[in-house]
Nucleic acid binder design. Structure first.
Lengths: 244, 244
DNA sequence: ATTCCAGATATGTGATCACAAATTGCTGCC
DNA sequence: GGCAGCAATTTGTGATCACATATCTGGAAT
């Protein structure tokens, strides 16, 4: 796909520029914790890994920079954003405010169809938790929450929430598979589902709040002691690791 | 500035790419209501108006697209985002949640230096209100709120809040200079200042909430009746108006 | 052996070109 | 006079080139 073929002849079926594809690919990767905090990247390296020219990557990175996922240092070097402890607390508080709002609204707009879907996503989450499959759990977790918040029918707020998810994504590579956390998290998830089934807005908000606080505690325990965690995540010097 | 001068020889004093300058320029313009909702723009037109090549404009627009200020239609046409009534309510609710959080935190972190600064910004706001200077009022209003939220020392949350401001910016071109609204708004602002001076977090949150609800009511009164407002804001067909 | 400097490479940024799709404008026909 | 259809222009997107600066590599001097 490196050759200068003018365009794959997809005429109009996909209103989906290459920059958009790169954007979603990188965004999903960040949320799923496939990039380490502080990791250095290069436009050309990413372009080569994705089989495109640097141009779409540049535009995608600009969008992700606007969302705070990546940053260009003072010397115009590209790296994955590394959240500090206080910043992580800010994200936590903002998430509680916004996701609590969405959960409460979702509870009042649930229908029978949503009940079945949420239950199904919850079960999938349970499977990943039982298997201690952390990447799978992370992915299923985002899907679970996103589906709930979509029911709230507030896409703009959901967009802001997803921006916060992008910020905390890289932090997850620092946490080890912690059975205790998984169990507590699943407890909160069960209470979220219960509240939604009973159309109980305040209870849904409370359960979501607990879930977020639980995750934040788990993260801050690692973030606040930078020595050990950093040395694992950013091994001395890495030459252009991309792999997307 | 259209000539191909390689670069103005500013070596390192300004770590500020042309794309960043364009970005801030456009962002400020959107927040200040210099773009009408639904207004069509072109990359080349903006570039010419700003005296640069299309490239920095492209990157700046990508960032602003990520923030929701502009959108590329299904036919890849660029336009200013037009918020619907429900979307406007979503922004309102999210602002109440986030800005309430910031106001409460700001109240607990105020110092004497902040007192003087906030008072000064409030006075400037009062001057614009008395003169019925709507653009000046809008500008001073954002500065006033931003300064308060900076005191909260939560830059990530402030960034999210500013994203919401960018979204509602274009709506302000639809509201006429409304003396009643200005008076009510200034009343809320006075209560914000009072609460901050007394380091009263809950009162600050309540006052900020009133301010936001007040502004939202003012906007929704115009947005919800699309006929008249639209015809004023988007006169039939406008050929490539840029003027930055 | 360590340090420091110069050449070489890598990298972000801006400009320009090419191209496909869409919009526009004009012309002719009914 | 109104409207359909075709040509010309516009416009977003991707690719490539140029350039300034940062970063890296290698070796020489102490």
């Amino acid at each position: 796909m490196k050759d200068t073929k003018p365009l794959p002849p997809l005429p109009s079926v996909a209103r989906d520029s290459m920059a958009d594809q790169v954007y979603r690919h990188l965004r999903d990767g960040v949320m799923a914790g496939r990039f380490a905090p502080g990791q250095r990247l290069t436009i050309r390296g990413l372009a080569e890994a994705l089989g495109s020219s640097p141009m779409p990557v540049r535009e995608a990175l600009r969008r992700l920079q606007a969302e705070g996922a990546f940053e260009f240092s003072d010397t115009a070097r590209l790296s994955v954003v590394q959240l500090s402890g206080p910043q992580l607390r800010d994200v936590r508080d903002a998430r509680v405010a916004l996701e609590g709002l969405l959960a409460e609204r979702a509870a009042s707009r649930m229908t029978g169809v949503d009940d079945a879907e949420i239950t199904q996503l919850y079960d999938r989450l349970q499977v990943a938790a039982d298997a201690l499959d952390v990447p799978g759990y992370l992915s299923a977790n985002f899907v679970f929450h996103r589906r709930i918040y979509e029911i709230a029918q507030a896409p703009i707020i959901l967009g802001a929430v997803e921006n916060f998810w992008v910020l905390i994504g890289p932090c997850f590579v620092l946490v080890a598979p912690d059975a205790t956390h998984l169990r507590r998290s699943m407890d909160a998830h069960r209470r979220i589902v219960d509240a939604l089934m009973h159309r109980d807005g305040p209870a849904a908000r409370a359960a979501v709040t607990d879930d977020i606080m639980q995750a934040a505690n788990c993260l801050s325990r690692v973030i606040d002691k930078p020595e050990k965690a950093r040395s694992v995540a950013a091994p001395k010097r890495r030459r252009r690791d991309v792999s997307a």
